[in-house]
């Protein structure tokens, strides 16, 4: 494979084709809270947000930013049974760098003094819940993800 590596990397073949595999699962969003020093009220922004991001492809780009940040997540403390300590350090550094870049982007764009960012998991309803009349956006289906706890690993995106 190493022989083909330059070609594969350069031509952007260095990815897998998954398309809702292995399982369609919960979505991951970013809830951001922006603060200013001049007395303005804090503002809450969600990424993705259907109301703010259009056309659909533009919305989907923001969705992918949130999903792929979540995919990078590994906890700050390496779990004792983690198989690859060096891999963990690399991935943690990548996650922290990307998260910091997202915060800096929002801080710069809105001129905010401080930005808080939380990853939020939104699970799909079961058929029974849907038949019982529960809405897809029911608040009980959202869960804020702490930075310390490992997230699911290995879920790929369509």
């Amino acid at each position: 494979m190493d022989f083909f590596r330059p070609y594969i990397d350069l031509a952007y073949w260095n990815h897998g084709y998954f398309f809702f595999a292995p399982n369609p699962g919960p979505s991951h969003l970013l809830k951001c809270r922006l603060y200013w020093d001049d007395g303005r009220q804090p503002m809450e922004l969600w990424f993705p947000d259907r109301q703010r991001q259009w056309p659909r492809l533009f919305y989907h780009r923001h969705f992918m930013l949130a999903e792929q940040l979540h995919m990078l997540f590994v906890p700050a403390e390496m779990p004792a049974d983690f198989p690859d300590p060096e891999g963990w350090r690399r991935q943690r550094a990548a996650y922290e760098a990307r998260r910091a870049a997202f915060i800096e982007h929002l801080r710069h764009r809105y001129g905010a003094a401080r930005v808080e960012m939380v990853r939020v998991e939104h699970r799909p309803l079961t058929p029974d819940e849907r038949m019982a009349g529960m809405a897809l956006t029911d608040p009980r289906t959202y869960r804020e993800l702490p930075e310390e706890v490992p997230g699911p690993v290995g879920e790929e995106l369509p």
């Binding site: 897998g16 292995p22 399982n23 699962g25 799909p124 058929p127």
Partner: peptide
């Protein structure tokens, strides 16, 4: 490879995968 990736997922074996695709508010 898309098909083989799905074969690793239990929802595709059980048959729930279509439901969990359409029930995702963010994709829908």
């Amino acid at each position: 490879f898309g098909g083989m990736g799905k074969l690793r997922g239990e929802t595709w074996w059980i048959g729930d995968a279509f439901w969990y695709s359409i029930a995702s508010y963010e994709y829908q």
